[in-house]
Nucleic acid binder design. Structure first.
Length: 175
DNA sequence: CCCTGATTCGC
DNA sequence: GCGAATCAGG
């Protein structure tokens, strides 16, 4: 793959948006993150306008004073908002729809369940330890995955595993 | 260990 | 110019 004007254009755009080199590489396809970084330097774009501190890690908002043993969760993440909002860069504090990849059932998480904030990783960023649950509105897939730590070594994190194997009768359909 | 960008240097 | 390998860091 070579750096066509179009690809360079996209690189500039994504880099300006604050995406990390690996994410840009994943999006462009055919190049490694090193290639992206190298190109960025050659274009002299290294310094990004804002100090977009990537690394989406929940700030942890605990409303209950009880001894929480829930790990990091955000109260806002427990709310169910329908739309997948576009946020700046890789940081995405947004609610998602859940789609059972087997039954194609579209569902919303139960409101009484603690919903972990997903890391929204690119496909190529997944490893054996990252949750592979697909993210986004099924009608407008965004090709990101949960990416949170998988609990006992399954394909999904504890939350998504629970969702995946939830009886169909317990699922809440959307639309 | 996961990830990040920065730098080097053979191609 | 390109990008893998490497480095330094969170």
């Amino acid at each position: 793959m070579n750096w066509t004007d179009e690809r360079v254009e996209q690189l500039k755009k994504l880099w300006a948006e604050g995406l990390s080199a690996s994410q840009i590489a994943a999006q462009l396809g055919g190049v490694s993150r090193n290639a992206v970084i190298g190109k960025v330097h050659r274009l002299k774009l290294s310094g990004r306008g804002k100090t977009t501190s990537t690394q989406t890690r929940s700030k942890k908002v605990n409303t209950t004073a009880s001894a929480g043993h829930r790990s990091s969760v955000s109260t806002s993440a427990q709310m169910t908002s329908r739309v997948v909002t576009k946020s700046v860069g890789a940081t995405a504090l947004q609610q998602e729809y859940f789609v059972d990849t087997v039954t194609q059932t579209v569902m919303k998480p139960s409101t009484d369940v603690v919903v972990p904030i997903s890391r929204r990783l690119e496909l190529v960023q997944l490893s054996e330890r990252t949750c592979k649950w697909p993210m986004g509105d099924p009608l407008q897939p965004d090709f990101h995955f949960c990416g949170n730590d998988v609990g006992e070594g399954g394909p999904y994190c504890t939350y998504h595993a629970r969702l995946a194997y939830q009886p169909a009768s317990d699922r809440r359909r959307v639309r």
